[in-house]
Simulated scan of single mutants.
Amino acid sequence: MRKSIVGLTAVLLSSIAAPALAQDEPAPAVTVTGGATVVSDYRFRGISQTDKRFAVQGTFTIAHESGFYATVWGSSIDDYVAAGSDQEIDLIAGWAKDFNGTKLDLGVLYYYYPGSGGMNSDFVEPYVAVSHTFGPLSAKVSAAYAPKQNAIGLTFPVGTGSVFKKEDNLYTALDLGAGIPNTPVSLSAHLGHSFGPSYLTIGKEYTDWSVGASYTWNHLTFGVSYVDTDDDFITPTGRNASKAGVVGSIGVAF
């Protein structure tokens, strides 16, 4: 959030006339934030979760001044993602703290897919991220590791039969952001790599990347981004869910 000084004279006059109003109110111990977004395509690490169709998403976060926070995030998805489920609900608990401009964020994320027909599709993924701001520029490196679990396992052919194996998954990413000074426009770039094999990596390693821009007006944010990967994932309808595409979004924050 950017703050600006509207004039030294006005500040001095207000402090003389009403000193109590000139004092900043203490920040609340607990803050509640949320929002809703409509996207033209929900991409998870470069791969469409909606068969390249629209998705409706929402989020709600409670944060304490100590740095601990809890978030619920949800999105509509296509049924090929999680054994027939048409919803993804992410339950997140974490801790974030700023150290002289460098922010450390630690947490764990549980992916919940209601209505998946009793299939073992839910999985857990701890994560860590370190970010730093350089004036209008920001940079973040992050890693998310999903330990061996049935939900992200794979079936391998063995002789005339097959065998199922639990798998783990590691995802690393670099994100860059920049706000254009004196404008409501921000630019972003992302590079990520998924290490496999697992269900999350289409059976092998792959890289995803994106570049984007956003425009904020009051509580609304309009975004557009170009997303691509170096792999192919064909959905049941014959679409390539990991092929390059342009994704648009409209979001509201409260």
Rank of each mutant, 00 (worst) to 15 (best):
S4N: 09
V6L: 12
V6Q: 04
G7Y: 03
L8T: 02
A10H: 01
L12K: 10
S14A: 11
S15C: 06
A18M: 08
Q23A: 10
D24W: 04
P28D: 00
A29L: 11
V30S: 00
T31K: 10
V32T: 14
V32N: 06
G35F: 01
S40C: 01
R45T: 12
S48G: 05
S48D: 04
V56E: 07
F60P: 00
A63E: 12
H64F: 02
H64Y: 01
V72H: 03
W73R: 00
D79F: 02
Y80F: 15
V81R: 03
E88S: 12
I89Y: 07
I92F: 02
A93T: 03
G94Q: 05
W95Y: 15
W95H: 10
D98K: 05
N100E: 08
G101N: 05
G101V: 07
T102Y: 10
T102I: 13
D105Q: 05
D105A: 03
G107Q: 08
G107K: 02
V108H: 04
L109V: 09
Y111A: 02
Y111E: 10
Y112Q: 02
S116Y: 02
G118C: 04
S121E: 07
Y127A: 07
V128Q: 13
A129C: 04
G135C: 09
A139W: 12
A139Y: 12
K140L: 13
K148G: 07
T155E: 13
T155M: 14
T155I: 15
F156W: 14
F156M: 13
P157Q: 13
V158F: 09
S162D: 14
K165T: 13
N169W: 01
L170D: 15
T172A: 08
L174I: 15
A178N: 06
G179S: 03
N182K: 09
N182P: 00
T183E: 08
T183F: 00
P184V: 05
P184E: 01
A189G: 15
A189M: 15
S194N: 12
G196C: 07
Y199L: 15
G203C: 00
G203S: 04
K204I: 04
K204N: 07
Y206F: 12
T207C: 00
W209D: 05
G212E: 14
A213M: 08
T216I: 02
W217A: 14
N218G: 10
H219M: 13
L220A: 12
F222R: 10
F222A: 14
G223T: 11
Y226E: 06
D228I: 07
T229Y: 10
D231L: 05
F233W: 06
F233L: 15
F233K: 14
P236L: 14
T237W: 02
G238C: 08
S242C: 12
A244Q: 12
A244C: 12
G245I: 07
V246D: 11
V246M: 09
V246H: 06
V247W: 08
S249P: 03
G251H: 11
G251K: 12
V252E: 04
A253Q: 10
